[in-house]
Computed example of a mutant assay.
Amino acid sequence: MVDERVVAPEVDEAERAAEAALRPRRLAEFVGQHVVREQLELVLHAALARGGVPDHVLLSGPPGLGKTTLAMIIAAELGTSVRVTSGPAIQHAGDLAAVLSSLDEGEVLFVDEIHRLARPAEELLYVAMEDFRVDVVVGKGAGANAIGLTLPPFTVVGATTRAGLLPAPLRDRFGFTGHLDFYSSAELEQVLRRSAGLLGVDLADDAAAEIAGRSRGTPRIANRLLRRVRDWAQVRGDGTCDRAAARAALEVYEVDELGLDRLDRAVLRALCVRFGGGPVGLTTLAVAVGEEPETVETVAEPFLVREGLIGRTPRGRVATPRAWEHLDLAAPGGPASLFG
């Protein structure tokens, strides 16, 4: 994965705009997630046939798999507009009340990172989702009055990377919950071919396979790597994105054969070389690589664990035999000692 943790604001905006341009607009264009897509299609088409609004939708899964894209697609399939906000942006119940009271009938309210809503806003959202009503408090102290406002029917689409942090009362308000899984290499190749067509990139099949294999099962990463390969081909190649160009470009951007980036390898190397394979605590490991513990835990660790390169034990993080092999290092004491 291209290191995106320190970027200039204008570069970040350009990346976001490029990602938005590659998003599919309808369910029929959406690649992968076949089960969720079929279930969602039934929910939306049934609501359209009844002439009402669909149940509220909760989308969960790791970053970059298409939760925001599906929220936009839901609005497009319903033929309505979408209002976008996020959990961290709504810290007071009044903020949410202002958003809810401005919704039009049938509109979609997309709440990204919904697990980070403040508790007062959560409690207000419970009532709004179930009864389409919101209570607005006017005045302060003993003279304060609660005025109930009836809301037009609408659909909340919540997205979360940590569904376990959602309180049960909020989870229960969603009529449909879809969990997005990582993509296969074949599915990512489909994503890349579609994106290459939109970008006007001449992408060879072997290059698509090379990029897909290093994209960590994530379409967002695949599309970003495609743009970096395109850049390399335009500047240092002949404009054709073949396997040689893909390998050369990804070497420049420090993305190895497994999809590990600079931070991933730094974590692995620190674990193996500095700490002898562990076990080592998260905070100590983060200090060793010069990152915040939260960055190591949320950005690098999930992929390393999923690839079987590190393990989490009660005593701390440990390197697996595959980690030593990937770094071309000899594990001290044999594999069994790593989990003793």
Rank of each mutant, 00 (worst) to 15 (best):
R230Q: 13
T155Q: 07
E257L: 15
R162I: 10
G213K: 00
A204C: 04
F176R: 00
R173D: 00
D181Q: 13
A207Y: 04
D206R: 03
Q190T: 06
R193V: 15
P153R: 06
S215E: 03
R243V: 05
S215L: 03
A249G: 04
V191R: 03
A196T: 05
N223C: 05
L258P: 02
A245R: 10
R227Y: 07
G239W: 13
G178Y: 02
Y183I: 10
V255Q: 05
R193L: 15
A209Y: 03
R193Q: 15
A186F: 06
P219C: 04
L225M: 05
D172T: 10
A186P: 04
A163H: 09
R262W: 12
L258I: 12
A244L: 09
Q234S: 14
C241K: 12
P169R: 14
W232T: 03
R243M: 04
R247F: 08
G213N: 01
G200L: 00
D205C: 05
S185M: 09
L263E: 10
G200I: 01
A168F: 07
L258A: 11
P167R: 15
R171C: 11
G158D: 13
L198H: 08
A244F: 06
V255W: 07
V157I: 12
R214H: 01
R228W: 11
A246R: 05
P167N: 13
G259K: 03
F174V: 00
G158T: 05
R216H: 01
R216T: 03
G164T: 10
H179K: 08
P153V: 10
L192W: 00
Q234D: 13
R224W: 06
R193G: 10
G178A: 09
T161M: 12
S185D: 15
R262G: 14
G239K: 10
R247S: 12
P153S: 08
T161C: 12
T161A: 14
P167Q: 12
F176D: 01
A209L: 00
S184Q: 08
D202C: 00
G175Y: 02
T240A: 12
T177Q: 11
A196S: 05
D206E: 00
R216C: 01
V252A: 11
E189C: 02
R173H: 00
A196Q: 04
F176C: 01
D205A: 12
R214N: 02
E254S: 14
V156T: 12
D256Y: 09
R193I: 12
L170K: 15
D205P: 02
R224G: 13
D238S: 13
T240W: 09
A209H: 04
E189D: 05
G197V: 04
L192G: 00
G164Q: 09
R224I: 01
R247Q: 14
T177E: 09
V252R: 14
R230L: 03
V157D: 07
R243G: 06
V201K: 02
